[in-house]
């Protein structure tokens, strides 16, 4: 049982960290997609949506090729910083971050689109530069949608399996998340253990999605 709580704690920490990692970039990209017209915009939109539609295992394979010791980024990181990525907790964070990124960007984009450009324009005429307008008008008005997006990304990260198993593997005490451990337990015939972890997963995910819905609903009411 102690092991299950350790796995739960690790999973929650990894999901929280991956959400924190994607938050600044995700919010910036969502704002760019909502407010600006630029060359290559539809290409970026497509790339961002890709993890939603291609099999997670395929995304995992791509990451493995990219982040492995012989991969372009993985090789560089190891040579330059001595960081090993694949089959470590870092790989779990990266895999969950990539898989939950589209959910954050999509929800945040809708949140930004819901802020009237008129308010931003008037703020400019009141002497506020683009940064001040973003921090004092756009961000506060979009905040509920942004929090909802972050919670959805967190919930998605909690349950990530396909990409994680490819790039991080199942290594107890090192990369074992709830989703990977459930699969492992069932394979070993430890159904009781799997059911307990299933219950925990469902409870945390339900909490996150429910909170996300609450934030979105308050925005529209």
């Amino acid at each position: 049982m102690a092991e299950i709580w350790e796995i739960t704690w690790f999973t929650v920490c990894v999901a929280a960290l991956s959400t924190a990692v994607i938050l600044p970039g995700g919010i910036a990209l969502a704002w760019l997609l909502a407010r600006k017209e630029w060359r290559g915009k539809s290409l970026v939109e497509t790339l961002v949506a890709l993890p939603l539609v291609i099999p997670p295992v395929a995304t995992g394979l791509l990451l493995l090729k990219f982040l492995g010791r012989r991969g372009p980024l993985g090789g560089w990181l190891e040579r330059t910083w001595g960081w090993e990525i694949v089959f470590t907790w870092r790989a779990v964070v990266i895999a969950t971050a990539v898989m939950s990124f589209p959910l954050l960007v999509r929800t945040a984009r809708v949140a930004f689109e819901g802020v009237s450009p008129r308010l931003e324009q008037v703020a400019r005429t009141l002497g506020a530069g683009p940064w001040r307008v973003f921090w004092r008008v756009t961000l506060p008005l979009a905040r509920r949608g942004l929090v909802a997006g972050a919670l959805l990304a967190f919930a998605r990260a909690l349950g990530e399996f396909g990409a994680t198993i490819m790039v991080a593997g199942y290594i107890p005490g090192k990369t074992a998340t709830l989703a990977l451990s459930i699969y492992h337990s069932v394979q070993l015939g430890r159904d009781d253990e799997a059911l307990v972890m299933l219950g925990i997963s469902v409870a945390i995910a339900l909490g996150a999605v429910w909170a996300s819905e609450c934030f979105l609903r308050r925005k529209t009411s």
Binding site: S116, R118, L119, Q121, V122, A123, R124, T125, L126, G127, A128, G129, V137, L141
Partner: peptide, 18 residues
């Protein structure tokens, strides 16, 4: 840019920050 014009603007709907 609008923030350096010293030109005030009141749109039809007021556009107050909610």
């Amino acid at each position: 840019p609008p923030e350096r014009r010293a030109v005030g603007y009141v749109p039809q709907e007021g556009a107050l920050f909610p």
